[in-house]
Amino acid sequence: MAGFILRRLLSTIPTLLGVLTIVFVMIRVAPGDPALAILGDNASQEALDAFRERMGLNDPMWVQYLDFLRGIARGSLGESMISGTPVLTSILEVLPYTLELALGAVFFGVVIGTPLGIMAALKRNGWLDYLLRVVSLVGLSFPAFLTAILLILWLAIDWRLFPVISTPTGGIGDRLYNLFLPALSLGLIMVAYVMRTARSAMLDVLGEDYIRTARAKGAPMRRLFLHHALRNALIPIVTVIGLYFGLMIGNAVLTEIIFNRPGLGKLIVLALNQRDYSTLQGLMVFSAFLVVMVNLLTDIAYGLVDPRVKLK
């Protein structure tokens, strides 16, 4: 297991290097001069030159690139051009809130999506199946921010069940209460994805020869579905959860802003507004790292679900 994780970690190096290069180039080719953006139109030429010199913007591109890589190798994402605080510190400060939100959304996605998908598969072409398919299609085509606003209008303003502004503080109960609505609104798309995957995976598996074998053994329906079919259907479901978890971090940005929650989302928007290039760069690198880690966890989950994937 440890060897497997180590090998997978090593194999992420080329991916990360590629991502780092792309991030570096994107920031450099983006229009706008960071010195001008930060110091303002009225800044003197001396001030601008001094700023560029201090930030290493006058160095040749390849020197900047090597400095950038060197910093990352040391575990540093640089410092904010505005406040001077290390970018990693700002990220780690708000990361728990975003992770909490993303995990909450995945929880809803799995806990609601999987059983609905299985039910749809079992009642294939029945009214429940049609209803769920239509609902999931609507769910997929609804942008996350719209769902969030509708949920706030309905559950927080009309029914007063949940707070409009989600403040992640206090005891565990308070935190979960505050998390509920943002996680649900972020998780609804996940519900739709997981449900569709669970349905089609289940239908695929139910047509397999080994299901016929299980029937020939005299296995009752319940055991057929929950034991023989579901474990096989879990493999594609795990894939979708892993894939979507990465997307979730991106979608969390909007959800965080709508619910006014602290998190990576607010950090990104702040950095964009302030033209804080070094923070943006650090955030992109960090997100890429996060997605790679989620993929690694997904691979480990495969090993737990499917014996043909060896972790050794």
Partner: peptide, 22 residues
């Protein structure tokens, strides 16, 4: 279901796919 597998059993043509892989 009380007859299948107990009083009448069946084996199939495709041994590669007839066993549950997990």
């Amino acid at each position: 279901q009380t007859i299948r597998g107990r009083r009448i059993a069946m084996i199939f043509q495709e041994p590669m796919t007839s066993l549950n892989p997990v």
